[in-house]
Design a protein around this nucleic acid. Structure first.
Lengths: 195, 195
DNA sequence: CAGATATTATGAGCTGGTACTAAAAAGCAG
DNA sequence: CTGCTTTTTAGTACCAGCTCATAATATCTG
């Protein structure tokens, strides 16, 4: 019956750390009404690292997570690009991109993929989407690797008409037409040199 | 110039920490070929906290960031909802939602907001976007609070025609028309082809 | 050369630990 | 109650990665 106290404390400890992972052993000891040594012992048996290690792994995880978000921001990986002509990108649909209920990819990922690619194709410093026309043809599930192809159909002064088709396994799952407006201010591209 | 050396070192120091924020003073000292004390002094003058503090703030930031991403997944906050009739949601455009170059919100956030709302309005277990028709009227900058209003214009068997208008400060910045298809058993069969 | 600036050295003290040893307290069994 | 085990607490030595302060040395500059 003695160990039940310990078990309860272990659970409390885990919960406390979940709520606030930045607690020191001393704080935890006070919160649980036991000595610091007991907390240390508990941590060892539970395999919980010390505060600094916890903090550190969190920070490291965050770094990679931030990078992942950055990548997501690109919405697809550029494979080929001919400015003002065409562009090709891929995007792998991961489990967190699908609707829980259906297991089908949220529609805006395809939109984002197509839109991003369309914007990339336009050779302008600043470009904005004016109009979009999209059609979802086949639902996409997690694990699918999408390939988007954007083609500039015609250009009129500052307006680009772009057609984008997204395929999965050579089957067209999505298509879109965009009108992109360039707001180019003749900004010069500066090549950055490292000192 | 003596201080130029210092300036260069300060720049190098910043870059090194940007590349790897988990360096100790000792490692930095070795990398820059100076003593540990010099690094400490540099950090003080540059206002750079020690490794532990850096790690910690990174971890703390990460915590709040994860929450932000979770929220982002909702793509807007639902304010009002009448199934099969209308829905209203808001979305605050934060600094990380805009294009660096232009400071204008990436178009797919508005699309995602509108699309999510449109899907929410549909009273069906499983619903998919079939067609979308969007128009960006006014560029949106960071800090703007968007309000989206979705109205079901008409319904035909399993298809919902939904009109969405997004306003910022009572000015329409975006509008979209969606055709949403609710999925029944028949549609399920078609989906199974994929696997 | 002196004087200023920059760099390095040195040492005390702090936090939040680990690792280890040992003693005290609690639990329970016969 | 006595003995034995488990659990908890205490104490010491040691570590990383610092801060803070103080002083010495190196380097540059007029």
């Amino acid at each position: 019956m003695n160990s039940s106290k310990k078990l309860i404390r272990h659970k409390s400890l885990k919960k406390l750390l979940k709520d606030n992972p930045f607690s020191t052993d001393e704080q935890l000891a006070q919160m649980l009404g036991v000595s610091v040594q007991t907390i240390r012992l508990d941590r060892v048996t539970l395999g919980i690292p010390e505060l600094r290690a916890r903090t550190r792994t969190m920070a490291e995880d965050a770094q990679t997570k931030v990078r992942a978000i950055d990548k997501k921001d690109i919405v697809g990986e550029l494979l080929d690009l001919e400015l003002n002509k065409l562009g090709i990108s891929t995007l792998k649909i991961s489990a967190d991109m699908v609707l829980e209920k259906t297991g089908i990819a949220r529609g805006y990922y395809m939109f984002a993929m197509a839109n991003t690619l369309a914007l990339a194709v336009v050779d302008a410093e600043q470009a904005l989407t004016a109009v979009g026309n999209v059609k979802y043809k086949v639902p996409v599930s997690a694990g699918a690797t999408l390939v988007a192809k954007a083609v500039v159909t015609h250009k009129r002064i500052d307006k680009y008409y772009i057609f984008v088709s997204i395929k999965s396994n050579n089957e067209e799952v999505f298509r879109a037409k965009f009108i992109i407006v360039s707001m180019d201010k003749r900004a010069k591209q500066e090549r950055e040199q490292e000192a």
